[in-house]
């Protein structure tokens, strides 16, 4: 019977050192809402658990110049929700984070741990490993179900959400059969900027319809330049459906997920647009 070692370093360097040294036997513990479940079910048996919640940078929400935010990878959703200004700028990101689990789970679960969800915010992710610190686009982090493009020993440090021009907002919806405590059958995030009623910038993300979250550029293009009228929304919805590469599984069928991706695109876009117009 092998024992599990647990460390809770105070600094990022110590955390990376321990994590990299232990190799594939190590697991990062932030909120633990996935890791502990996996351990209990016997799916993973880590030799080392590196608890990163003692590292200040990983648990901090900082405002950066120009009105953007840097969010530590281990910041729980509930903490982000309590931030006095984050909600105004990035309501859709907050929705996405706080659709996870229940109130109790949101007190633990972090955005970093849930990066495989669709995040359309245009965020930059900072990671640090034995070879130093680097930045990558959030959409480049997931490599497939349960896999990321992080190198051995690298730890996700923070998300940086850029400042936003006036008339910008976002929204996130997910389809679950229940109202909470469920895994998304389809998730959809839309971030957009409106100027005089015309969409000047858009990003559209879909979750649970492909091996990783999808950034659907054709859907964004269908929205940009339009007044978000029915024609544009239908074109964007069809672009979303076309981008779907889902599977049939216990959580949903191919036909259902594909159909729903378009429905959610329309609804999410409408919410984001209302917010962008200050409605």
């Amino acid at each position: 019977m092998t024992d599990i070692r647990y460390v809770a370093p105070q600094t990022l360097d110590e955390a990376i050192g321990a994590y990299a040294a232990a190799g594939s036997a190590a697991r990062i513990l932030a909120g633990g809402t996935d890791l502990l479940v996996q351990m209990r079910s016997g799916a993973v048996k880590p030799g080392l658990i590196v608890d990163i919640k003692k590292v200040r940078e990983l648990t901090a929400v900082e405002e950066i110049s120009g009105g953007g935010f840097r969010i530590g990878a281990a910041v729980p959703g509930a903490v982000l929700a309590e931030h006095p200004r984050f909600r105004q700028t990035w309501p859709g990101v907050l929705e996405a984070v706080n659709l996870i689990g229940s109130t109790q789970v949101q007190g633990r679960a972090s955005a970093g741990g849930n990066l495989c969800n669709a995040s359309p915010a245009g965020a930059i992710v900072t990671v640090q490993g034995p070879d130093g610190r680097r930045e990558l686009k959030v959409e480049d982090v997931p490599a497939g179900p349960g896999r990321t493009n992080l190198k051995p020993g690298e730890i996700l440090v923070s998300f940086t959400l850029p400042p936003r021009p006036p008339g910008s907002s976002d929204a996130y919806l997910r389809m679950i059969p229940r109202t909470e405590m469920d895994i998304a059958v389809v998730g959809c995030g839309v971030s957009l900027t409106l100027k005089d009623g015309v969409c000047t910038h858009a990003r559209v993300g879909l979750g649970a319809v492909a091996p990783t979250a999808l950034l659907v550029e054709p859907a964004a293009q269908a929205l940009i330049g339009s007044r978000l009228d029915d024609t544009a929304l239908t074109a964007a919805a069809n672009a979303c459906r076309a981008a779907c590469r889902p599977i049939d599984d216990k959580r949903g069928t191919i036909a259902y997920r594909t159909q729903i991706a378009g429905v959610l695109l329309k609804r999410t876009t409408n919410i984001a647009a209302e917010r962008a117009q200050g409605k």
């Binding site: 229940s102 229940r178 109202t179 909470e180 405590m181 469920d182 599984d249 216990k250 959580r251």
Partner: peptide, 16 residues
């Protein structure tokens, strides 16, 4: 059985 747990065996939760 592919859903031997409460995550995917969907009993109602309070908010349902």
């Amino acid at each position: 059985v592919d859903n031997p747990g409460f995550l995917d065996y969907r009993m109602p939760v309070c908010s349902d």
